[in-house]
Every structure is written in C-alpha cells, then in structure tokens.
Simulated assay, not measured.
Amino acid sequence: MKLQTQIPLQKETKNPINYHSKMVLLGSCFSENIGAKFDYFKFQNLQNPFGIFFHPKAIEKFIQQVISKKVFSENDIFFENERWHCFDAHSSLSSSNKEILLSNLNLEIESTNLALKNATHCFITLGTSWIYRNIETNEIVANCHKIPQKNFTKELLSVAEISASLQNIIAQIQSINPTITIIFTVSPVRHLKDGFVENTQSKAHLIAGIHSVLKGKNGCYFPSYEIMMDELRDYRFYAEDMIHPSKIAIDYIWKKLVTTWFSEDSIPIMNEVDSIQKAMLHRPFHENSEQHRAFLKQVNSKIAEIQKQFTSIQF
C-alpha cells in the first residue's frame, strides 16, 4: 500500500557536494535550517551574512553591494527604538552602538565577497514575493525593523520582476565566480500574515519566476517547498505555530537534499562526524572514571583521524 506521493528527484552528477565544497546560503529562515545541518556535519559554509532575507529584491541588492564592495556609512543607517538599524540588513545585526553596526556591515561585505569568489555552491531560498517600499526614499527594504506600517507601501512582485531580479543575481555572482553552482529553492514556511490566498499567490510568483530563469540553464532547483506541501502534507510535520516545519520535517528535507546533491564518498564522513557529535554530547555519571577516560581517548582519536583528511573540520 502506498501512503505517500513522492517528489521525483534526480541525482546531481556534475558538481555534487563533498567535504571540499564551499557553500554560501542566502535567503529566508529555511536557509538557516539547512545551514544548521551543514554546520552540524562540519561542511564549509557561510549563512546569511546580513541576516534573513525574505524576498528576491533584498538578495539582489545585497549581491550588488557585495560585488561592488560597498562601504556603509552613517547615511546608510538610522536610529529607532534605542538601536541603530540598516534597511538593507536584518534586525539581528542592529546595535545600540552605530560604530559596531557599521563595522559589522562592512566586515560582512568583505567576507561574503571572498566567500562567493571561492564558493562551489550558492543556495538561494526565496520566502515571499511581497515587498515593502520606504515612502520617504522610494527604496525597497530588506527589513522594516518594526517601523510603523504607514511609512511603507506594500507591493507584490510580478513574475517578470522576480525573473529579472534572479537573472541579475546570477549574472552578478558569475561575474566573480563563473564556475559556481547556484541552487534555488522556495521556503516551505507560509507567510500567513500576508493572508492565506496572498501567501499562495506569492509562492506561485516565486516558483514561476525561478523556473522561467532556469529555462536558460542558469541554475538548479531543489523542491523543498514541494516536498513539504506534497510528501509531508500533515500537521504533525509542523512546529507548534502550524507554520514552520518541525524538526522531523527539516530532517526529512535534509535527507532528500543529501540523497540528491551529496557525493557518495561524503556519506561515510558525515556518519563519522555524526558519531563524534553525539559522543561529545555524552554526559558521564563519573567524569574521573577509567571508563570515561577511555571513552574520551577514543573520541579524540576519531577527531584526530578525521582532521588528518580534512583540516577544515573543527570540533
């Protein structure tokens, strides 16, 4: 008896991910869910240097700033609710000290420029087609920082606008790294604050925009949204808010990504890393016992062995 419809997936053969790969992940909070998996298994990756980006225009502007090595100044930040913010970055970078904010913004621009030049893969996860435009400047913002709604107009990006934005993102990244593999995905997180129908329209625009660009073979698509909506169409796969994927769902989608995109020789290394990670979480009843000392010696021996093969792996 078949109790689930399966999304057909093809194994990547041209540029599979292994422990020599270097990833850059940009986009919605789902990027951070997958990024946490890359961290756990000790892959080389950089995640959302300017924090979470929800829509393609925010990612496009960030990439332009990275490629041009923009230097942020006081003209690019503002003070509100006792903190300094930047409309181009997430509130996770905001600070009570403007010098710290500016320093962090400029450091992230430099580090992302270097990371993109050396990256083998770039994951771009899109969350919504809805954008907010600052009425005063007429600029699209990445984050509103809880500024009153009256200061912004809300717009829905058309499929054509999304396609153009994605083409610009691809062209800019390839200008400094022609061999990079760019993988697009749509976040399965529903933006219900926009409305149920509005969220569906938003996701549809993103999916249509991505696939219109992929017709030119300028990137790849991983169906995380489709897996969540079709294979995991049950509320037991959602977190308590009934909106975000649960840990089980994230693990499931991650395994699908591994099956599709990871090289076969990386799997034994991942299993070994997993074993070490679980061992490091072990809490002994008697720390000074001979048995625990032998256990620690065995774990340290495993770490030393894996670090001989991959110096980038650090525990």
Rank of each mutant, 00 (worst) to 15 (best):
L126P: 09
A36Q: 14
I182Y: 02
A204E: 08
T120V: 04
F310H: 14
F50K: 03
S275V: 02
N138F: 05
F184C: 05
F79Y: 13
H90L: 08
A171K: 13
Y221N: 06
N97V: 06
N45L: 04
N106F: 07
Q172N: 15
I182G: 02
S224M: 00
F53Q: 12
N143E: 05
R236S: 10
I173C: 11
K61M: 11
P148H: 04
D39L: 12
F41M: 08
F41Q: 10
L9R: 10
T125M: 06
R133F: 06
I176C: 05
W130E: 02
A208T: 14
G35Y: 07
K217Q: 14
L102H: 03
I147G: 10
K22E: 13
A171P: 07
E305T: 11
L156A: 13
K278C: 06
D88E: 07
W130V: 00
E136F: 09
P188T: 00
G35N: 13
A115V: 14
E136G: 10
S289W: 08
S111F: 04
K255A: 10
L116C: 10
I170F: 03
G27K: 00
E305S: 15
K14P: 04
H90I: 03
E32V: 05
I67Y: 07
E155W: 03
T153R: 11
S103D: 15
L206A: 11
G27N: 07
Q65V: 01
T125A: 02
E272C: 09
A142V: 01
H55W: 06
K42L: 04
F72H: 14
D230L: 05
F54K: 02
S275W: 03
S158Y: 09
K215S: 12
I248Y: 08
A204S: 15
N151V: 11
Q6R: 12
E82R: 15
F222Y: 03
Q149K: 15
F30I: 05
L192S: 00
G216H: 14
F79V: 12
I306D: 02
A279T: 07
E305I: 06
A164M: 09
E99S: 13
I140N: 00
Q298F: 03
Y19I: 05
I173Q: 01
M1W: 06
A160M: 10
W84L: 09
L116N: 00
E110A: 15
D241Q: 06
E272P: 01
S312D: 11
S31Y: 05
S263C: 07
W130I: 00
T260M: 09
K117S: 14
N288A: 08
F196H: 10
L25F: 10
S175P: 08
I124H: 05
H90R: 13
F315T: 07
A164L: 12
Q6T: 14
N97M: 07
Q4K: 15
S212Q: 15
A119M: 10
I207C: 03
N113A: 09
I227P: 00
E240Q: 13
Q167W: 03
N104A: 11
Y132G: 02
L192A: 11
